[in-house]
Amino acid sequence: MNEGNHVTADNLYLFALQLLPEAEMRNAATHLKECAVCRSQLGEIQGEMVIYALTAEARTPPSQARERLLRQVAEEKKEIPPEPVEEKREPVLYPRNSKMYLIDTPEEREPRRVAVLMAWLGWGVVACLAVVTGMQVDQRQMVQQDMAVATAQLSQSEQQNERAQEVLETLHDPSAMQVALRLPLSASAPPKVDPEAHVIYLARTGGLLFLADHLDPLQSGKTYELWLLPAQAGQPALSVGLFKPDANGNASVVMPQLPRGVAAKGFGVTIEKDGGAGSPTPPIILAGMQP
């Protein structure tokens, strides 16, 4: 490039600030396209502008702005190009407090399910999906974002909002216990797809999220019951909640009313009569223990 034509330093500043007359703006832009020297100087000036921009008094945008953006984003949906064939395997994150059970293989994960489910099942199930997908870093973040959206949408009702906050707290608390529930090791001849479940439990607050899938349908008059097995020896199993799977074998228990501060050594699922039982009735269908 002809060095004699470099944009002068003064003009680079005016260009960066968009203060040059239109014709001169164009000339400078044309030169900048071809001149790395001027481009690098412009980059420095823009870096200076960032520093100065940061001195603007920090203000939080109005709360509806986020919703407005996401609405327009949804309206301008994209044609999604096909996934690259050789997809990079995300690292699988194993449950931090449980080494007993392997987490399901990546092939079984369906991140898109989160969005679909959210539309018709609501945030409770989404919260639980976080438990399942939470084992994988990327997906956990995605679900947390969904959770943030869901939480924002729930803000009309303070009570619901409080509940959503509890869910988020349970999800995010690094001390929360995560347990994968599987067929007990003694069970023989597993069915075509094993039922499985995941629990995130925060003893401090009593917050609990549970999601199960591939559950067998129940006979009429029966229900599944989730049990917390207290860590303290001699304490009876605590009923967490009752649940019935949907047509696809999915079920969830979200933030049941649990006492605070009960340390758990594990969780189990049994089949009980409608209305639940006072203590678990064998056999235990799914179980997960802390090592």
């Binding site: 986020r66 953006l69 996401l70 984003v73 949804a74 949906k77 994209k78 044609e79 999604i80 190009p81 996934e83 969005a115 973040q141 995605m142 974002q145 969904d146 943030a148 959206v149």
Partner: peptide, 9 residues
């Protein structure tokens, strides 16, 4: 890839 959730982040 058209992931709307990334926009929320």
């Amino acid at each position: 890839r058209g992931d709307e959730r990334a926009m929320a982040v």
